[in-house]
Design a protein around this nucleic acid. Sequence first.
DNA 1: TTGAAAGCGGTACCAG
DNA 2: CTGGTACCGCTTTCAA
Lengths: 343, 343
Amino acid sequence: MKRPTQVDVAKLAGVSRATVSYVLNDLTDGYVSITEETRQRVLKAVEQLGYQPDAMAQSLRSGTTNTIGLLIPDMHNPHYWQIAYGVEQEVRSKGFDVMLMSASLNPDHELHSVQTLARRRIDGLILLLTFFDHVHKEIEHLVQQRKPVVLIGTSPSKTDIARTSFKEGAVEVMKHLLELGHRRIGLIYGVGTVYPDQGTDRLIAYRQGLQSMGLTTDESLIQYCGTTIDEGYKAATNLIDQQLPPTAIIVINDMLAIGVMRAINERHLNIPDDVSIVSFDDIEVAAYLNPPLTTVRVDGEALGRAASQLIFKRLENPTLPPQEIFIPSQLIIRGTTGEVLHK
Amino acid sequence: MKRPTQVDVAKLAGVSRATVSYVLNDLTDGYVSITEETRQRVLKAVEQLGYQPDAMAQSLRSGTTNTIGLLIPDMHNPHYWQIAYGVEQEVRSKGFDVMLMSASLNPDHELHSVQTLARRRIDGLILLLTFFDHVHKEIEHLVQQRKPVVLIGTSPSKTDIARTSFKEGAVEVMKHLLELGHRRIGLIYGVGTVYPDQGTDRLIAYRQGLQSMGLTTDESLIQYCGTTIDEGYKAATNLIDQQLPPTAIIVINDMLAIGVMRAINERHLNIPDDVSIVSFDDIEVAAYLNPPLTTVRVDGEALGRAASQLIFKRLENPTLPPQEIFIPSQLIIRGTTGEVLHK
DNA sequence: TTGAAAGCGGTACCAG
DNA sequence: CTGGTACCGCTTTCAA
C-alpha cells in the first residue's frame, strides 16, 4: 500500500485537493470558508487513511523545513550530548525539530555532514567544528544565502557564535594548583583534531601560570594523545612512570581524566594525596567519580541553548550584525585536587 | 542571494536544465552522451555558483531520501549513544545518513518524533521506544506502506527487531551474588517509563534467584526511582540507611549505579567489602570507575548495527517475514562485587 | 547531442 | 463555498 496523498483524501471525501489543503491548514478561518459538513468529511477521510502531509513536498513549496541542523564532532563525549540536549530543548520549544549529525572526528565526514545538512534546506545550522578550514567555503555559501549559521566554539568568529573560553578556567586551575604547592604539573593534551586553535587557550594558561612562578615548562610533562578514555589512561601512565613524576596533572577534558584516574588507581597511588587531577567540561558523571573530579565547568546545555537562540534571532532578523553569546567557564573544586604532601 | 538552482547553472553554462542534471548524475555514460566541452562548462558553472542539488526536490522526485531515522528515549544515557553510534557506523557505510531524534522520556515527544520522522519520507526507521502503545498506530501505517521499521528492545515483536535480553545476564548476576554469599540483595529499579515490560526480565530473574535459595523477596529491598544519577544516589541512601541494609545491590543500569556508588562512598563504606554492586549496560566509563563496575554488558554498538542491517535487508527485500537479530547479554565481573565479609 | 515537458505532493491564488 | 491550476527544484522520457 502506498502512502496516501492529498489526492487520495480528496477522492475519498469527494472534494478537490485544494479543499483538503484548506481544511488541514485551518485556512477556513481566513478568507476561504468551508462548510462544517465538508470539513468533517475531509477530516474523516484523513483519519481513515492515516494521511500525513508529506514534509518534503511542503518544504519544497514553502521553502522552509522547520528543522535546525546540528553537527557535533563525535558521539563519544558526553559534553557534546549536553550541548545537543540544550539545542534540542530550545529548538523544540519553538516548534522546530533538530537534525543531528556526527562528524566522527573525521574531516571527510565533517564536510559531508555540513553539505548534507545544507542540501536539506535546513532552516538553520549549528556547528561544532573540529576541522574548521575544510568547511569554510560551505559556510560562506550558507551565509550568502542568508541561512542562519551559528558556531559553537572558543575563537571569535565573523559568524554568529555561542562562545565559551577555557581561558579564565585554565587560569583559575593554575592558580589553584600553585596555591596547593604544586610545581611539577603535567598536562595531558588530547584533542582529536587538527584544528589549530583547539585547546590552545588551556596550553597558554598552563605555560603562563608556570611562568608566573618563575618556572619553565618541562616539555616531558606534556603528553599529547587522542580522545578516548583509554588514550587518557595511556598518556597518564607515561607521565607517572617518569623518574620525577608530576604531583598534579591537568587533563584537557573529563573523559580523558577518567582514564587518568584509572591509571593512578591501578598503581595504588592516592588521588589527591599522591597526584592531583583537574580537567575540563564537567560532564555529568564528574561529580560522582571517586573521588569527585575537580574540573572546569563549561555549561554545555547553556551553550546549546544560546546557539539556538542565535539561530532564531537571525531567522527573525537576517540583517543583524554578527552576534555572540558568551558562556563563561568556572573552576569547580571537588575531591581530586589537594595539597602536595611529599615531593 | 538565493540558493542557486539547476536553472541558474543552466543559464550560466548556456545549456538546458536537463543537461545539467545529466552531467551531475553521470548519465553521460549511459544512453545520453554529452560533449566533454559542455560537461566542463556545466561543471565550471556548478563550481562558480556553489550549486548543490536540493535534497528535498530530489527526494520528492525519486521517492527516496537516503536517510534512516533513529529515535532514542533520551540524551542522558550513554547506552543510547552507543546504540546511535552503531547505527551511524552501519548506515553511513551504506551511503545513507542518520536523522536522530530524542523522545526526552516524554510520551508526547515520542509520538511527535515518530510522526515527524514518518512525514519526512525517511527510508527506514529505527525505534527505541519507551511508551510503545502511543505510537502503535503510526508503526502500523509505516509497515503497511512497506517502510522498513526496526525496533530495538527486549520483547519479541511482530516487526523486525534487534533484540537483546537481560534475562541471561540477570540470572548470571543472581548466581554470582548468591555464590559470593549474599542473601540480602537490594534492587534499584529505575526506569523512566510506563512501558510495562521494561526491566521486567531483570525483576523476574531477581525474584527467581532468591526463590531458588529458598529466600523470599523482601519488598523493602526494592527501590523504584527515575533515570538520573542523582535519583540512583537517593534510592541507594534509602537502601543503605535501613536497619538491616543489603550486602549487595543490583542496579537496573550503569548510570544509576554511578549514583549508588557515590552514596556508598559518602558513607565511607567500602565497595565491595561492605556493599557489592552490579548493574546493567556496561557503558564506556563502567570499566574506569573506582572500583571498576561489575555489570551485565549489552553491546549497544552491536544492537545499533544489527538494527541497521535489518533495515537494509528489508529495503532490499520488502516481503521478507519479520526478522530478528539477537544480541546476548553477558556478566562482566569487575571490582564492585565481592564476598560477604560481615552480615 | 541537447531541449521540452511531465510529474513527485503540496500550497495558494484566482475564477466560478 | 469550492475547484482549477501554476509553481517549488529536480529527474527522466521522448522528440528534435
